[in-house]
Amino acid sequence: MNMVQEAVVAQGISKLYNSVVALDSVSFTVRSGEVYVFIGPNGAGKSTLFNIIAGIMKPSSGSIKVLGGNPFDPSTRLKTSYLPATPPLYPWLTVMENVDFYASLYGFNKKTIRQEAKGLLEKLGVQELATKLSSKLSTGQMKLASIVLALAVEAELLILDEPTTALDPGMRRSVLDLLREKVLNRATILMATHLVDEAEGLANRVAIIDRGKLIADGGVEELKKLYAPPAVLVIKPSLEQVEKSSTVLKLRWENVYSYDGEVRVHTDDPDEDLPKAILILAEKGIRVLSISVVKPTLEDVFLKLTGRRLKE
């Protein structure tokens, strides 16, 4: 395989849907052989960006090179494989027939691709899906089938839009394992997700995208070092006292966020701040159910950068 050093080079990519700005001058570089994960909330522009990289859509402005070529050229697309967020299955075909169909668009040998797809289904423990009609699959099974479609073709660049949504936790792990295998086979993976643990577990580098803007990218630890505190206090008061706790704590600390019945306090010195927080809350008569010190996640990076949370 004749590999270029950079799998994707995007410079100042913008995309407008009529008047909606979906992407606003996004620039980044994905190196060959790495897993590059886009993380961002709903409507951030991830799918739009992936459509451009997959050669489906033209950017309104900016330039993009994929595997050294123009993503619109069939010769470039021959080397990429795209997994859309919604399963692209023909309902009247079985899963294997869908595989055959898409393989033929690549011009690949049907037998080889079938063999590959069969292997993938086996690794996921769902061989029985091969002969099932796509219309008869559950939501998660459709997702699995689409993943098999995307991974069965031998691609240098995998463009995976939310590959694990709709999957149960066990299946998510199996899929991530498959992706790790692909990386070992020197594929480059571009992936979009809302899930921070997924990004952290797989990514060499992460790009944080929000409202059409790429606000930061780099290695996971690098981003945490830059944007997240050394530690986070996670305080769980009784439900009706969450807001009050957050207000009280904000008087003392700068980065305090509350959601899901928890209050997260970014801290540089957890040893000192933990007893302080307990004391302050006790003084105000707030009953704390639990309190702990955790390592920051990419979610905290996102909170720090945008003041909003990622999702869920």
């Binding site: 489906i56 692209p88 898409y102 668009l105 479609l149």
Partner: peptide, 14 residues
């Protein structure tokens, strides 16, 4: 509407 159009044109299909 089926969601296949984009997948189709992400392949080398012209």
């Amino acid at each position: 509407e089926r969601g296949t159009l984009r997948k189709l044109f992400s392949t080398p299909l012209t």
